[in-house]
Amino acid sequence: MFAVIQFPGSNDDRDTRFALKSVLGAPSELVWHKSVELPSDTRAVLLPGGFSYGDYLRCGAMGRFSPVMGAVKRFADAGGPVVGICNGFQILCEAGLLPGALLRNRDLHFICETVALRVERSDTIFTSRAAAGQRIHIPIKHGEGAWFAEPELLARVEERGQVLLRYCENPNGAVADVAGVMNEAGNVFGLMPHPEHAVEPALGGTDGLLILGSLVDAVTEGRK
């Protein structure tokens, strides 16, 4: 079962579940942010996009203090796959599960558009359905999506191959064109683009399935 965390202000929680269930046939449950435990049959955790707690202090800054985040951290520490999309990525960075931080877009505007991305690796549980170097198209929609890391951290992240997605044309000022990054252990992944909004041919294409489908494959194979 895929646990989709629902924070107050989560917006893409239903869309993420739609992609998992209706398109990929993977069972999912909404897990309320006040839960202190994940359901026992949780095989993967997704933190959806949105504006948790209104993003009033700083995006993701309040989300990390949600009771459920303790459970998510334990799940991740135990090697469970965790994916944060957009606001979920911001929360994972704030919670220290992923390196770097997400800053205000370079032009200070919210940007909603489909962008071209380059998949950097295909030997991870998040990108196995794609080929290394493949160019894919997935929409972004964020005001604070410019990934940032100090040079030393960036060098370390690059050296360990943690960057999985890069913008072909940088829309927001992210350092090194980073659109998605995973942790060192390779089981936590955060990305600004919304794969759940590219899962149907007539609604934005199906490149999002390369990401979400990889995760579903990993979970399915893990169970075998």
């Binding site: 917006n11 893409d12 239903r14 869309d15 739609f18 992609a19 996009g49 505007h109 919210f110 940007i111 909603c112 558009e113 929409p139 929609k141 919304h194 759940e196 909004h197 899962v199 149907e200 007539a202 609604l203 934005g204």
Partner: peptide, 14 residues
Amino acid sequence: IWRQYDQLVQGNTV
């Protein structure tokens, strides 16, 4: 203008 609006949330925008 509309680049600043989320046109996609809820996943129904044909």
